[in-house]
Amino acid sequence: MPAAILLLLLVFYPIATTIILSFFSGSSFVGLGNYGAILQDPATLNPNGLSGGPPYGTLVNNLLWIVIHLPLSLFTGLVLAVLLQRVRGASIIKSFIFLGMVTPLIVIGVLLGFTIEAPVGFVPAFFGSIGLPSLDVNWIAHPTTLLFGLILGSVWSWTGFSTIIYSAGLTTIPKDYFEAARVDGASEWHIFTRITWPLLRPVTLVIVTMSLLWELKLFDIILGATNAGGGVGGAADVLALQMYRYAFVALPPESNKAAAVACMLLLFTTLVAGFLFRRLLTGDAPKPRAARRLATSTRAGE
């Protein structure tokens, strides 16, 4: 009962109020008017961006984060977890990798800003030193380098999460599977693709979902590295920053539009979370062929 009261007060009431707020403009009911206005705003979806490059708009930017950042941080974490599986002192290395996760995102944003900003940042200087003058520029000052610099530059911060989760997942796979596969003459690549990767599917699902949620509500890194406008031309702008501008930068505040963006984010995150729960509750990871063979031979031995 206390939990239910807390949920009602702290979760359901604010959500309901926000949803109601998003259908109003001041005290007038406007239906989906705020949503229409936001979706037609070039800051949300910039039609010129598709042909002329960034700024693309917040919706596309959030999508780009998911498409680029998610697979990179996921596979980097997987590779590191597998490589560190049998390394002495791996826990210390993992602790360092995990530092990116415990560092406040606003700090990561400020650090990223410094690293890609000429003349102080080492990223432009590095590309200059290896003879790539086109990248020896102030990355903060150009839409393309800003957007992709922040996406690629923040992979390290989220890699710690996937590394730790994958490491934990690897410990749950019975060693018998690997031994049986090796007895059968399987190569390390086959062991990875036929045993390790399939058995890590539930873990991968968790990482993908958590990363998706994080990338949808992305805010601190962009604000720390740029400004409330999302940097040059709004090139790095994202939905959460757009919501922040409506709520706290606009004079007077446009709370109704902020609520509409919040509802859009809620919808997206609910879809992602719903997908995760459905898969976790109903779907079992398929057993790899080697594991099935091992199980069959064990039963035959009985």
């Binding site: 000052a141 839409p143 940097g231 040059v232 031309g233 501008r245 930068v249």
Partner: peptide, 16 residues
Amino acid sequence: GTFQTTFWSQLQLLWS
């Protein structure tokens, strides 16, 4: 307000 942030970021874009 948001005019100011837009003005700033658009001028950054013009410089770029």
